[in-house]
């Protein structure tokens, strides 16, 4: 068989040392994506550093009233956490909209952020893919791309990021705490995933040996929700999804945050829309104008133009619901 070494470090420091010291190392969380990719031959790590039992399995309040989520907290536990449900409903809803119950019981917070695209060409080693094998080409651009990106893609790659959780975290201004050989740093979730450009093999800004240890949420600022459209009622990736945060005062938007999923190589924080929304009347006309402004830069492929319409509908619907203009879906 294809041999690999397996290590279960006792501490974050040991994990980082092992990860940094071995070029082919991968951190193993729940394994719900990595192990599949190993079976497919997409990933063939020489060393698996099993971080799933590190003491990173807590969800705790921060001093400023936010939440600190350990990297090994399981998706199910995070979705069910009372502080998440009450303060960050979009995050709980996004988690529950993802995968299946069995997968959520296994998948971790850190692993969810690092999962790879489900583009069919990426997962099939008998075919070219610039993300898997840089320079080999992108058959998706002319091939099966109904489920792929309309925003932020490049000539070299049209893959989407598959995470639901990350979309909610992006809208909620979460930050990722990384431990690496050169110490600790914090990266906003919105800056964590890269656009593909001409090196789509790099999904994120993570550096060799760096380990996600926690995700930090700022104090809840306003109510939020997550909406997802998919091809079946459960256990399907988003055709498009939206996480929205909104507060309204005196009929005007006080605070708005919007992020799209299923449409781009990363959770797509809609800053253009947010600029239109801020201070504008909280009505459907504004919401539609804001979302249209964001999606004006969309570049759909032959078979996925519907995603632009779908994302628009989801976002306007979500904002209307948060503004109390539409009944809860």
């Amino acid at each position: 068989m294809r041999p690999f070494a397996y290590l279960r470090p006792a501490s974050v420091a040991e994990a980082v040392r092992a990860g940094a010291g071995h070029p082919g190392a991968r951190f193993l969380g729940g394994g719900t994506n990595l192990v599949d990719l190993m079976k497919l031959g997409v990933e063939s790590p020489g060393l698996l550093v099993d971080v799933s039992r590190l003491p990173l399995d807590r969800v705790e309040p921060t001093d400023d009233g936010g939440l600190r989520i350990g990297a090994t907290v399981r998706n199910s536990d995070l979705a069910a956490h009372p502080g998440v449900r009450s303060g960050y409903p979009a995050l709980s809803q996004a988690l529950l909209a993802g995968a299946s119950g069995q997968l959520r019981n296994t998948a971790t917070t850190g692993g969810n952020l690092l999962q790879r695209t489900r583009c069919p060409y990426f997962q099939d080693v008998s075919k070219p893919c610039n993300k898997r094998l840089p320079g080999s080409g992108c058959p998706a651009r002319e091939g099966a791309h109904r489920d792929l990106a309309v925003l932020g893609h490049s000539e070299d790659c049209v893959a989407t990021n598959p995470s639901d959780m990350a979309v909610a975290l992006a809208a909620l201004d979460a930050a990722i705490l990384l431990h690496g050989p050169e110490g600790e740093r914090t990266v906003p979730v919105t800056d964590f995933h890269r656009l593909p450009g001409d090196n789509p093999d790099q999904d994120t800004v993570i550096r060799p040996g760096e380990l996600i240890t926690e995700v930090v949420l700022p104090p809840p600022a306003a109510t939020s929700l997550y909406r997802k459209a998919r091809d079946r009622a459960s256990y399907a990736f988003a055709l498009a999804s939206v996480a929205a945060v909104l507060s309204v005062r005196d009929g005007r938007v006080e605070r708005a945050a919007l992020a799209f999923g299923g449409v781009a190589p990363r959770p797509w924080r809609a800053r253009v829309a947010e600029d239109v929304l801020r201070g504008a009347p909280a009505d459907e006309e504004t919401f539609a104008r804001a979302v249209s402004a964001e999606l004006a830069t969309a570049r759909p492929l032959r078979d996925n133009g519907f995603k632009v319409d779908l994302a628009h509908r989801l976002a306007v619907g979500a904002l209307a619901e948060l503004a109390g203009l539409a009944p809860p879906a």
Binding site: R118, Q123, D231, R232, A233, S234, Y235, A236
Partner: peptide
């Protein structure tokens, strides 16, 4: 695979 060939889930 069964993640992309969508047989109905219980929720459907």
């Amino acid at each position: 695979d069964l993640a992309s060939y969508h047989v109905p889930s219980c929720a459907d």
